[in-house]
Design a binder for these strands. Structure first.
Lengths: 341, 341
DNA sequence: GTGAAAGCGCTAACAC
DNA sequence: GTGTTAGCGCTTTCAC
């Protein structure tokens, strides 16, 4: 059985396709009597507009792509959870893609651009792409970048003030009397900008407190996953002079680090205090609960979507801006001990 | 600047659109010389086919919708992580939707069906929809259901054998000598079928061991989240005769239950053993690590996508089938103690 | 093997 | 206010 088209409705209602279109889209004025007729015909036939055809005619797809490295990373999952309703409110569907942090895959997506007409714009949290890659991409694609710092002015970036947030985290540790503070998660290469910002905050907090930084306590990791925390923490504990506190660049890393510490029979925070980053739900229920930096994810999602939609709607090129969401320090048991929530 | 169309390519190459289309899609035979010309023209113009137009002409969208209640629930996030590559391999993009378990929203999606042509089929993990709702849906929509049991034969269902898996979990607890075993997560109403299956497994294990079931130890919860575990566990611990083991219907519930137990100063598993369900990554790193039932998520994703694509490709109605993926019991510290992984 | 032309279903000038 | 009609860019039947 063929699908019911707008033309069928028009015929049944005894009007032209134009009128049906007007009714469906609420355009222009339609005489109440006509509208009534058309609506009855629609109901009778069970007509539903073909979105594809509409989009083709409109030259837009009504979809935005959201690209993250891993869907099962709680931080991204929580972010997505916030992005979807925001997009829907703006009239967009969300097409999700996952790149495994693969630079080539990310590059393809960003290069293919809107030309495929599959999506009108893209929100991406790149892992493998360097600033360079982002700069040379298809400029026609409305783009909002999350989680990496931008210098280029052709796209927008939404995030929190990583340096300030990291400084807050480390200052918190210092204020608790910790003096040998390690950092897990540095990424001293082109694609590790976000990590490097955190390292800068780490240094800034030390400087502000007049404390020296022990470079050997800054541990690089390939990713921000639990396993990275496990490995790095093990290395730290194998030293003769282990740290008395650790700033982890994600809550997952913190979770892994805690796992290792507990396994070795050490106490948190008595022996080692831990602070993470991201405020994933996990950290609110783990044992101990994880002190962390909480970025306002709802705000990030909101800002990103709004900005993207605005960009999609603008005819000419729009200068790229840096949008910052709030963050706050949430001390929990991993730094304060049992008394804390 | 206008977009480059297939027609432009045809003109530049001095051939007809038909031929360009043939080249692009690898259809039919094209004379090598012609193909060469066309390819050069494509490259020169930077032509990329408009997916929307192609889809409209083809009468398919090339997208499948995946609908889950919550994206930030680790189980769904991990499942999605597996579904996306499987779909991509089958030539489909994934459109994600999130319903918050809202029955109406789920109903709309499932009712709108493929008629909008936005997606060719749907994989849904319903929370609010009853069997009834699923049965009266738009029958034209190729549908694969996850996580709920089906009786109706008009759509497919992919899952694991919940009864067997739950029996395994509880039998494990019994084999460790536990006798007062609680269950957290029952949902004794129309939309709680999955939960009820687990309760049946809970009973079956008791029956097999010749043990009576203390009905008051079966706790209902609205959801399978951490907070549900927290609340239910608190209630259990407030009793005069708390259980010595708990079967939680999800790892999140287990995580919440553990949180409460630890907070009260009790030991796991010495005082209370805990087993969960889902095998989310979290449980492999939490403290203690969580014994669980591990469904083969990759297989579930694979089966669901394959079946859906098959269904999309079939002209007539396809009878609904029940597809089962493997599961296995993974004992960890929350039942075995420190010695375990 | 390639060309001409008729749609796919909808939108939006442009008339009346 | 409503009808007519020409596309949106691609696929594909039918000839040649």
């Amino acid at each position: 059985m063929r699908d019911i088209t707008l033309r069928d409705v028009a015929e049944l209602a005894g009007v032209s396709p134009r009128t049906v279109s007007n009714v469906v889209n609420g355009y222009a004025q339609v005489a109440p009597a006509t509208r009534e007729k058309v609506e009855r015909a629609i109901a009778e036939l069970g007509y539903r507009p073909n979105v594809l055809a509409r989009n083709l005619a409109n030259g837009r797809s009504g979809q935005i792509a959201v690209v993250v490295p891993y869907l099962d990373t709680p931080y991204f999952a929580e972010l997505l959870q916030a992005i979807i309703p925001a997009a829907r409110k703006g009239g967009y569907n969300v097409l999700i893609d996952q790149t495994d942090g693969d630079r080539q895959h990310e590059g393809e997506l960003i290069g293919r651009g809107s030309r495929g007409f599959l999506f009108d714009g893209m929100i991406i949290s790149p892992l493998g792409l360097s600033q360079q890659d982002l700069t040379v991409r298809d400029l026609a694609l409305p783009l909002v970048v999350l989680g990496e710092r931008v210098s280029d002015g052709t796209f927008d970036h939404v995030g929190i003030d990583d340096i300030a947030a990291s400084t807050d985290a480390v200052t918190h540790l210092i204020s608790l009397g910790r003096r040998r503070i390690a950092a897990i998660g540095d990424q001293p290469y082109a694609t590790g900008e976000a990590a490097q910002l955190r390292t800068r905050g780490f240094r800034a907090a030390h400087a502000a407190a007049g404390l020296p930084v022990d470079e050997s306590l800054i541990i690089s990791t390939a990713r921000f996953n639990r396993i990275d925390g496990v490995t790095a923490m093990a290395a730290l504990l194998d030293r003769e002079d282990p740290p008395d506190a650790v700033f982890c660049y994600s809550d997952l890393v913190a979770s892994g680090a805690i796992h290792t510490i507990v396994e070795r029979g050490l106490r948190i925070p008595e022996d080692i205090a831990i602070i993470g980053y991201d405020d994933i739900e996990d950290g609110r229920y783990s044992h101990p609960t994880i002190s962390t930096i909480s970025p306002d994810k709802t705000a990030i999602a909101q800002l990103a979507v709004e900005r993207l939609i605005m960009r999609i709607g603008s005819p000419g090129p729009v200068p790229g801006v840096e949008l910052l969401a709030e963050h706050r320090l949430i001390p929990r048991q991993s730094t304060l001990g049992r008394a804390a929530p």
